[in-house]
């Protein structure tokens, strides 16, 4: 049996001082698997990604999350990241005055340091990043710019994938990575995900549409509705959703 990456049990969560969004969610992901969570607006998709990555505006009220044998609930966001969890943001933030390349190196070195490994000097790091760039069809002047500042929607998403490739996490949570992408950018993003994917890691794609799944084929598809997973199946379930809509499936 393959290694377990994450085990989410009876997870209940809400917006701090707000409504309950997740109402008892169960999900287990093993190494080598690609999972897709689909669901209508307001079903709790984005909340799940924020809860997993440790956003302070959301809180877990009940349940457990086991990540690689550690209790994720008690870990700060930076510790989760350094332990191998990566969330690609639906809306990556623009940070003026922070150089993209230096940011990537800082993030990379934070993880190296956390794991007790050697930090990369600028030259080593340049080599490491060159190959990732070509994979995503990105020009290297991209690195000289400020973090996401003035990037197009497609460039921002590619930059998320670039970060993912550099940090090489155990589990990737892709929050609506396909939103706002044209076909070329979608292909580049999918190529990045497929290049990352291996037998030792796992992907959780959170998406509204089936479109991305044409390029990255999931092993499991789950339908999230009303804060719970209401149906699970293989990739054919996504096609059913596309055809029938969510209402029918959730019913």
């Amino acid at each position: 049996m393959s290694e377990q990456i994450i085990d989410i049990k009876e997870l209940k969560a809400d917006i701090v001082d707000g409504d309950q969004i997740l109402k008892g969610l169960n999900l287990k992901i093993n190494a080598g698997e690609i999972h897709a969570i689909m669901g209508p607006n307001g079903s709790g998709k984005s909340t799940l990604s924020k809860i997993l990555s440790g956003h302070p505006a959301y809180e877990i009220t009940d349940g457990a999350i086991d990540f690689q044998g550690k209790d994720l609930v008690d870990m700060e966001a930076d510790e989760r990241a350094n332990s191998g969890l990566f969330m690609a943001f639906q809306y990556p933030l623009e940070i003026a005055g922070v150089n993209n390349l230096e940011f990537l190196r800082m993030a990379y070195n934070s993880k190296q340091k956390y794991l007790g490994l050697e930090e990369a000097d600028p030259l080593d790091f340049d080599d490491l990043i060159e190959e990732k760039l070509s994979l995503l069809n990105m020009k290297s002047d991209f690195l000289d710019r400020n973090l996401n500042e003035g990037f197009s929607g497609g460039e921002k998403k590619k930059n998320e994938i670039l970060q993912m490739l550099v940090l090489n996490p155990k589990l990737v949570v892709l929050d609506e990575i396909d939103s706002g992408l044209d076909v070329d950018a979608l292909r580049a993003v999918a190529a990045g995900i497929n290049a990352y994917k291996s037998e030792g890691n796992a992907v959780l794609m959170i998406t509204h549409y089936q479109r991305l799944l044409d390029y990255v084929k999931p092993d499991f598809v789950h339908i999230l509705s009303g804060g719970k997973i209401v149906k699970s199946g293989d990739s054919s379930l996504a096609l059913e959703v596309e055809k029938e809509g969510y209402d029918l499936l959730a019913a």
Binding site: D78, A81, P92, I95, A107, S110, K111, Y114
Partner: peptide, 25 residues
Amino acid sequence: EEDEIFYLLSRGIKKDDALAMLTLS
């Protein structure tokens, strides 16, 4: 901005470093 701090934290950067980066930014 809380979301900006969180973005940096989610990349493994320590909170103090994130605050310093955003202040310089």
